[in-house]
């Protein structure tokens, strides 16, 4: 049985009156790749930031090794690496300077920094760009630099927010290979994406985020089988149409109970679809 490294229990997150996540339950197994998939703006990044204690849940709790993340901040700061969607490094520093800077901030021992930098540079395949200013790197290289910055302190858990976003198919493939390589080193990886088919190949577990909730989670093969689909794309489309239909019917039923005499067709109008989908 998998060890549950991180758990989200009935986590709701609101920004003001805007509900982003509603009673989310999720567990992240150790030494596996967990993918959180969902459409843009569904709250994937919010989940990731809740995991590291950057956001505080409005209700519910996030546990790391069965300990509330806010009580385990010291461990989280040391054990987590976070590769952001936009890249979290200084553009005016070179690749080497960024890595040295973050290595020191992460508390990597001075004697080990040089080796750690070299190892990570080789891992992300940026040795030729080591003295290049980050702002002069290509998008793919920036993604790899950000990944390198996240891995410089050799974290147990690596969080990757949209790692393949903005990359061309070739670079995307290279990034997937890199993720696999990192996994082989025994790192637990949590990643988000809206490019669903990528997850098929690399994720051990996926969680489908739809309309503020995790509607499905488990191994990709199991989920595909459950929905009778061959791809995760197909699964997602099915879930989407099912949920929209359910909510539409529920809405109509509520409307009928109130008054609603007029007759309507089986499919929702664009306006109704927007109402059903809420904020999107």
């Amino acid at each position: 049985m998998d060890t549950e490294l991180i758990q989200l229990k009935e986590v709701t997150k609101k920004f003001g009156k805007n509900v982003i996540l509603d009673s989310v339950n999720l567990s992240i197994p150790e030494n596996k790749i967990t993918g959180i998939i969902g459409a843009s703006g569904e709250g994937k990044t919010t989940i990731l930031k809740l995991l590291i204690g950057f956001y505080k849940p409005t209700s519910g709790e996030v546990l790391y090794l069965r300990k509330n993340v806010f009580k385990a901040m010291k461990d989280i700061e040391k054990c987590f690496g976070f590769a952001t969607e936009d890249g979290s490094f200084y553009n005016k520093l070179t690749v080497r300077e960024n890595l040295f800077y973050f290595a020191r901030l992460y508390g990597v021992k001075t004697a080990k920094i040089q080796d750690a930098v070299e190892d990570i540079i080789n891992l992300v395949e940026l040795p030729d760009a080591i003295n290049t200013l980050a702002e002069d790197l290509s998008i793919g290289m920036k993604k790899r630099l950000d990944l390198a910055c996240s891995l410089i302190h050799d974290p147990k858990i690596l969080i990757m927010d949209e790692p393949t976003e903005d990359l061309d198919p070739l670079l995307r493939q290279q990034m997937i290979e890199l993720i696999k390589k990192i996994k082989k080193q025994g790192t637990t990886i949590i990643l988000t994406t809206h490019l669903l088919n990528e997850m098929d190949h690399i994720c051990d577990k996926i969680a489908i985020l739809f309309n503020k909730q995790i509607v499905e989670d488990g191994p990709p093969a199991k989920i595909k089988k459950k929905y009778g689909q061959t791809t995760l794309d197909g699964v997602f489309k099915k879930i989407f149409s099912q949920r929209v239909k359910e909510r539409y019917q529920e809405k109509r039923r509520k409307g009928k109970e109130r008054q609603e005499p007029e007759e309507k067709g089986p499919f929702p109008s664009v306006k109704e679809l927007k109402e059903v989908l809420g904020r999107r």
Binding site: F54, F102, L105, G107
Partner: peptide
């Protein structure tokens, strides 16, 4: 405003 601010937050410093 720098993108690195988030990573700074993440470090144990």
């Amino acid at each position: 405003k720098t993108k690195a601010f988030f990573r700074n937050f993440m470090t144990p410093t």
